[in-house]
Amino acid sequence: MSLTTNKNFAPDQKGQGWKIFKSPKLEPFLYLSPSIILICLVIFVPLVIGISYAFQSISLFRPSDTGWIGFEHFEDIYQDRKFYKSLRNTFWWTFTSVILQFSLGLGLAMLLKAGFKGQKFFQALIFLPWAVPTFLSALTWAWLFNPVIGPLSHWMFALGILDEPYNILADPSIAMYGPIAANVWFGIPFFAITLLAALQSIPDEMYEAAAIDGASKWQVFSKITLPFLAPMIVITVMLRTVWIANFADFIYVMTSGGPANSTQILSTYIFLTAFKKLDFGYASAVSVVLLVLLLIFATLLLKMRQKFVRVN
């Protein structure tokens, strides 16, 4: 590793810029270390501790009863009907939200792709829901569904969807549609922005060549646009699915998991177990299960993506 053959050479005072190569392997770490240290201390250390909690009894209500208990929490989970309910709801909540966000987002991106006068202004407005703080979106939608103050139940009544204008958030059979509606509203911009950027990166020559080859609109979409977007779609859908599965704000604010646990998903269940029951051990065990499920999902999707890429 000697940089010089002449070690006696000493750079003069002004040569301090020489740091560049003096430790060429260490310099990037100098810039990275504050971030890495912070992330390790605030995220990874607690992560390891959090996973270890899953095998301990840690409840602030029963402080005497603390200690290692092996897989007891997981055995409890196995028998926990609330857990299964939350798991089903998590699937329902996540996939309905993602599918609606994605298809509406893709539609919007396609419409915006061609471009029109005043598009920049229009775009800033239509992407606005994304900028609204999530707790506020949740509150706003909760208010919209409230028949006292919001119009939605009255409209649904007028359309014959509801028998009378009542708050759907209080009806266990349909309460989940409330947070889902808010989530779709909030999530369309993310998909529209990413897909629009991806669409704009498809070279015009591709479309011109397809036009010369006599492709129909549908053929152009299915044979050119979609395959080009596929890798991007898989990634964004994966990131979004994982994010939404973890995302508790809307449900926590709008329904707190109720009524009768009809909107309880795993992440709200974890939060409420930790926050209201202060049973950190059980909350951690449930989050470990959620983590494992998400890892399985992400792996499957990435495998699928590899196949996609090979086909392309």
């Binding site: 940089l3 010089t4 002449n6 050479f9 750079p11 810029g17 020489w18 560049i20 190569f21």
Partner: peptide
């Protein structure tokens, strides 16, 4: 990596570009 670079017979291997 190895070898000597001299400007006016002075070794400059370790000298920063600015100098």
């Amino acid at each position: 990596t190895a070898g000597d670079l001299l400007f006016d017979d002075e070794l400059v291997n370790e000298l920063a570009p600015r100098d």
